[in-house]
Simulated assay, not measured.
Amino acid sequence: MEKSPNYDLILAQIGCKNTKSRKVIIEVLEKSDIPLSAEEIFLRVKDSGASTNLSTVYRTLDLMENKGLLEKCVMSDGRARYQLILEGHKHHITCTSCHKSVSINICPLENLERDVGNKTDFNITGHRLELYGLCPKCRKKE
């Protein structure tokens, strides 16, 4: 049985006050396999029975991004989406037609990051990779 993260500990480690809204937002993000928009997070929080408002979701996401707990990416549809980075970063490929996003379980940039770091003497602390294309369902439509 997979052990769920201790949300109280996660918030304490990043120096954040422990609130019900913050815990439920972390829980929603932790359960998602894909990055979510603030609106999607808000709707999932509401569906869980928790009480919060959209402005609290935005403030919490901003705080958690600044503390390094979330990664924010702006997708091809112009909407920002967020993903929790408890166990390292993740990459996704997103359909440019329906905006479906699928996680990629490998990091194709690890070797490049190491080589660039060695050649430039930089201590590289992260990277972003966004892949776009047409999913199989949208390809069939065309």
Rank of each mutant, 00 (worst) to 15 (best):
G117H: 05
P108S: 13
E40L: 02
R59Y: 09
L86A: 03
L70E: 02
Q83C: 15
R79S: 12
E71P: 06
R128W: 02
K140L: 10
S55T: 09
I14R: 01
I26P: 02
V57R: 01
S21A: 07
E39P: 10
L84S: 01
K90T: 03
C95L: 08
N111Y: 11
R79V: 10
N123F: 12
L70H: 03
N111M: 08
R139F: 14
A50G: 01
D121M: 13
Q83N: 15
S101F: 04
H92R: 05
R59V: 09
L131I: 09
K141T: 13
D8C: 03
L131M: 08
I106R: 15
N118D: 14
K140R: 13
Y132H: 12
C98W: 13
M64G: 02
D115C: 09
T96G: 14
K100V: 07
I85A: 05
R114M: 04
R114K: 14
V116E: 07
V116W: 08
K119H: 09
H91A: 14
L134Y: 12
D33Y: 12
C138M: 05
E71S: 08
I14G: 04
G49N: 00
R22L: 00
H127K: 06
N105Q: 13
N111R: 12
K20M: 07
K90R: 08
L63C: 07
K72E: 05
V57I: 13
L63P: 03
N105Y: 15
P136I: 00
A50L: 00
E39N: 14
I104C: 15
K31M: 05
Q13K: 07
H91K: 08
I25A: 04
